[in-house]
Design a binder for these strands. Structure first.
Length: 987
RNA sequence: GGGCGGUUAGCUCAGUUGGUUAGAGCGCCUGCCUUACAAGCAGGAUGUCGGGGGUUCGAGUCCCUCACUGCCCACCA
């Protein structure tokens, strides 16, 4: 016989006392658990405890151990790996509601899997966020009247590092406070030496494979950030602009203006300074006579040719388009086809350069205005039309992007590499098409594939200082480029030592795209040093928002498949074999979560001022309530309209549970005084009940099993909302509203004869509560941790509720053995009892019985012996005290005869009446009855019409027909009774 | 210009492969300080499931169409 344990709430009180400012000398009495739950009193403590105790660390597996599936309660030693890489927030970032939502969903999954015995690993880190961080520090430096240029590269970078050491990672601190169960020992930063090695290796390898090249192309240039940006970093906004029609003089055979003009249409007149030609469609009959002619470019007085190209659309504008190869991607392509010169007319800051003649030094928009004016003066401006078109903006700073010809580095994502038999994009497409990676919701698969099918080469160089510097050295002697793993001292081509490293850095997403491999030690995978990679790659799941689907998810898939694909798989016997695509993917599942908006469905933004700071809300309502809000609203496919009204509701839920605990602890203590205790060894697993146990015990245990089953299923499908709602309903609707009220009848401490009954009831009560805490713990980790420790009276079987087992119906075999029929009967019987009680309560209200007055009630099951009424009679007669207590009835009389009382409440299987003299509100009652009758008549008519339909009878499945027949009979019976009640009302 | 989604109670949203009388939370109305909880308890009201058409024995669910409304992608100057 294991030792018995008295349950008290001392530990939680101790914690509360510790948290009191100044270490107050008032020591609370054991049962001074505050009436209202105060999250702030416990949350900091547990958040610190979880981190300090390293509860969620997942050590590198012992490579000599062959067993991957040992059972482990601590979530570390055994089980299937369940690995999530936290999407690294920007190091400059602050935690916003979107983060908290993402982390809540991930944390629920993590805690759930951990409690299911999986070997979970959740890796946190931060991203160096090139542009964002550089901008931030530049601004800071600007307040000291300095510029980064004045400081110089090295000093500026040192300044950024200094900033990072001081303020970076604030967001991780916030995550700690919110209880994210990540492995803090594995925290990374994308500029860490370890990860920089991976970046270097990836670059060199791709270069060697011919997939990285450098060239002059039109790229998206941000004049404010003064760097190239990739296509996905450009956001297009619809913009009301103009279409200027400008006439270019045609040059006659004599080399002089022929007096004729060709009118072009443009949205960007300022770029005409760089025009190299005008293009028309070869079959455009309007311009046939101009074939082979030349034009004089106004303002620049340059002779340019007329090109024929069928890319030109005849029906847009004037059918003649100016060609500016250095400032437009289409024109660039056109220029390539026709060997046109590319004349760059703007500098890094989008000011006109020396190529722009008289306009040199002007900002692009100033130049535009001036050029239009000048053209008008020259009589060359034919017209200005309103024109709506899309303008690209820098994702970071919203500056209008300038397409600009410049020398940049690219990854040829579509280039096939013989040794791999595919291109990077092809592998990434195959991984999803062949379902090695699955998306939830699955429509993102389509979006992903669509994007991947049209992917262009990825511009990876940035003209920034903060980031991974491109490992390419330019030779001043032979002008060739040296790319090696180690910093070179000499040019690899001519041996010259006049080499300098590229000043560009890599796109931030280049390094974050490598994270799934680099966090596990790639590329330095030695036989002794690859256990992490062998055990945890591929990761299991990626939880992220669709906004970085292309930025990050797609890049991780490309790079993961590419680089991991080269790492052989280590078999259990130590031998190596090539890795399959399924083993190369960076993650097996992608769960795309919704966006968090404000209560009015508006996107939260600083400029709108509608940003809800999660930390503020957490302070007000507690972390658990906010987490529960987010989880319960997380239905897939719809954005979340965050509304604190919901959070208030879940704070009430937390308070409800807190008070249920107070009630339970109070009774446990009372029991202890009476010499009754709960066997602690019965806790921690699913409870079972004896066949002869009271109805409510059998019912609540059956409900618990059903709830656990449903919650597990919901989480299996990422239905956080369902899971949360199911638990809420169980805890509040079943456990508190019904079970706790009934169990009060069983807890009798002053009667020795009732000791066994009390002991059994108390045991089930504590068991179910302890299970419910575990069930809830992934959603409300703080509250449940506090109460779970209290249940064990400071002597818990684990360091945290997070390290226990999650309730699961499969563990409950004994219940099935008892008798599944009994289980069903218990559920039905309880339903009957609940119905009777609800009817009586309504009846009391109808009849105006004061709340605290006890009345006598009569329950009639009628003379008709149908199964339902027999069941009602049996359960009512065996559970009289429940009905009496919960419906405040002094005596429940059972009868089979008709009820003579005037105020009767009728159900299909029974009628109830109460003895109360006060006159009822006849009109109100009549009104209600009339409505009810109408409702039933409608249902009956619908049932009758279906049952009278031969097609229905012939084609509908038997259980539908039978159900409808039963329903029809019940409705008919109840209708009769209600009509009778209505008649009996009199006037 | 393509593609995807949404429209269900006053509000925010569920509603699995079509199947018995469409649900929840919040809010609202009424009555209760019933010793776990007033952040509570009990009772109650609330819907032409965006409009129209079709398929089916049967449609909130499938098809067509219209309206409104989000979002993503796209080089038409």
């Amino acid at each position: 016989m294991p030792p018995l344990l008295k349950l008290r709430v001392v530990p939680s009180i101790e914690i509360l006392a510790q948290l009191q400012v100044g270490g107050s000398s008032i020591t609370p009495m054991p049962h001074d658990l505050p009436k209202a739950y105060d999250p702030t009193a416990i949350e900091d403590h547990w958040a610190e405890y979880w981190v300090k105790e390293n509860l969620f660390a997942q050590p590198t597996p012992d490579p000599t151990s062959k067993s991957k599936h040992e059972e482990g309660l601590d979530g570390q030693s055994g089980g299937e790996p369940f690995v999530i890489l936290l999407p690294p927030p920007n190091v400059t970032g602050n935690l916003h509601m979107g983060h908290m939502f993402e982390h809540t969903e991930s944390d629920i999954l993590m805690r759930w899997h951990r409690m299911r015995g999986d070997r979970v690993l959740w890796i946190p880190g931060t991203d160096h966020a090139g542009i964002a961080t550089q901008m931030l520090v530049e601004r800071q430096v600007a307040t000291e009247n300095k510029t980064r240029q004045q400081m110089g590269r090295d000093a500026f970078i040192e300044r950024v590092w200094e900033w990072k050491r001081h303020y970076g990672g604030a967001i991780l601190g916030q995550m700690k406070r919110l209880g994210a169960s990540v492995d803090w020992q594995r925290e990374y930063f994308t500029m860490d030496e370890r990860l920089s090695v991976a970046v270097r290796e990836a670059f060199v390898k791709l270069y060697e494979q011919g997939l990285i090249y450098r060239g002059a192309y039109i790229v998206n240039w941000c004049p404010r950030c003064q760097t190239a940006i990739s296509d996905v970093e450009v956001v297009h906004d619809e913009h009301k602009g103009h279409l200027w029609e400008i006439k270019y003089p045609v040059i006659g055979a004599d080399g002089k203006d022929a007096g004729e003009f060709l009118t072009i249409a443009t949205t960007r007149p300022e770029t005409m300074l760089g025009d190299a030609a005008v293009a028309i469609h070869p079959e455009d009959e309007r311009y046939t006579h101009l074939h082979g002619k030349k034009l004089r470019l106004p303002l620049m007085d340059r002779e340019i040719s007329i090109l024929l190209d069928d890319w030109v659309s005849r029906d847009f504008g004037t059918g003649a388009v100016k060609v500016t190869p250095a400032h437009d991607p289409n024109d660039f392509a056109l220029g390539q086809r026709h060997n046109l010169p590319s004349i760059s007319i703007m500098d890094d800051t989008a000011h006109i350069n020396t190529e722009g003649g008289a306009y040199e030094g002007m900002d692009r928009y100033v130049a535009r205005k001036k050029i239009v004016e000048d053209l008008e003066e020259l009589g060359l401006l034919v017209g200005i039309k309103d024109h709506v078109h899309n303008v690209g903006h820098c994702d970071r700073c919203k500056t209008v992007v300038e397409p600009r010809l410049s020398l940049q580095w690219f990854i040829a994502v579509n280039k096939k590499v013989e040794s791999r038999g595919a291109s990077m994009a092809e592998l990434a497409i195959a991984a999803v098409k062949e379902e090695k990676i699955r998306f939830t919701p699955d429509n993102y698969e389509k979006i992903y594939l669509q994007w991947m099918d049209n992917i262009h080469d990825w511009c990876i160089s940035r003209q920034l200082w903060w980031g991974h510097r491109i490992p390419a050295w330019h030779c001043a002697t032979c002008h060739k480029i040296t790319v090696t793993r180690e910093d070179p001292t000499k040019c690899a081509h001519c041996g010259s030592d006049k080499i300098t490293q590229s000043t560009d850095v890599l796109d931030t997403w280049f390094s974050s795209g490598l994270l799934p491999v680099s966090v596990f030690g790639w590329p330095k995978l030695t036989p002794e040093n690859r256990a992490d990679f062998d055990n945890f790659y591929p990761t299991t799941l990626l939880v992220t928002g669709f906004d970085i689907l292309f930025f990050w998810v797609a890049r991780m898939i490309m790079m993961g498949c590419w680089f991991a694909g080269d790492v052989d798989v280590k078999e259990p016997d130590g031998s190596l074999r090539p890795r399959t695509l399924a083993e190369s993917v960076p993650f097996k599942d992608v769960y795309i979560h919704a966006l968090v908006r404000d209560a009015n469905r508006e996107k939260m933004s600083k400029t709108k001022g509608n940003v809800v700071d999660p930390i503020e809300i957490v302070k007000q309502y507690g972390t658990d309530a906010v987490r529960f809000t987010l989880a319960s609203m997380a239905s897939p496919g719809t954005d979340i309209a965050f509304n604190v009204a919901r959070t208030e509701g879940y704070r009430a839920f937390a308070n409800k549970i807190w008070n249920a605990a107070r009630f339970i602890f109070m009774n446990v203590d009372r029991a202890a005084e009476a010499g009754i205790s709960v066997d602690r060894s019965l806790l921690g697993t699913m409870p079972t009940v004896a066949a002869e146990a009271p109805l409510e015990a059998r019912w609540i245990v059956a409900e618990l099993h059903a709830t656990a089953e449903k919650v597990n299923q919901a989480l299996e499908n990422y239905r956080f909302d369902d899971a949360a709602n199911i638990i809420y309903q169980f805890f509040w609707g079943s456990f508190c509203d019904w079970y706790l009220e009934i169990v009060k009848l069983r807890l009798i401490f002053d009667d020795p004869a009732k000791k066994d009954q009390t002991q059994a009831a108390l045991t089930t009560l504590v068991q179910v509560f302890e299970n419910a805490l575990r069930l809830l713990s992934p959603f409300m980790p703080f509250l449940t941790e506090e109460l779970w420790h209290a249940v064990y009276d400071g002597n818990p079987p684990a360091k945290s509720v997070a390290l226990t087992r999650y309730p699961h119906a499969e563990q409950a075999k004994p219940l099935d053995e008892v008798d599944s029929a009994l289980k069903n009967a218990g559920l039905y019987g309880m339903k009957d009892i609940q119905k009777i009680i609800t009817s009586l309560r309504a009846l009391r209200k109808d009849s105006g019985v004061p709340e605290n007055e006890m009345v006598r009630a009569i329950l009639s099951t009628g003379a008709r012996e149908n199964l339902g009424s027999r069941r009602v009679r049996w359960y009512a007669s065996h559970n009289r005290e429940i009905v009496q207590s919960l419906a405040r009835i002094s005596e429940l009389v059972l009868t089979e005869g008709p009820l003579s009382q005037r105020n009767v409440h009728s159900d299909a299987n029974f009628d109830v009446a109460i003895d109360y003299e006060k006159t009822i509100d006849v009109p109100a009652k009549r009104d209600r009855l009339t409505k009810e009758i109408a409702r039933l008549e409608k249902g009956l008519a619908s049932a009758e019409s279906k049952l009278g339909n031969e097609g229905f009878l012939a084609k509908a499945p038997a259980h539908i027909v039978d159900g409808l027949k039963k329903q029809e009979a019940e409705t008919r019976a109840q209708l009769d009774k209600l009509r009778r009640d209505l008649d009996g009302l009199g006037t």
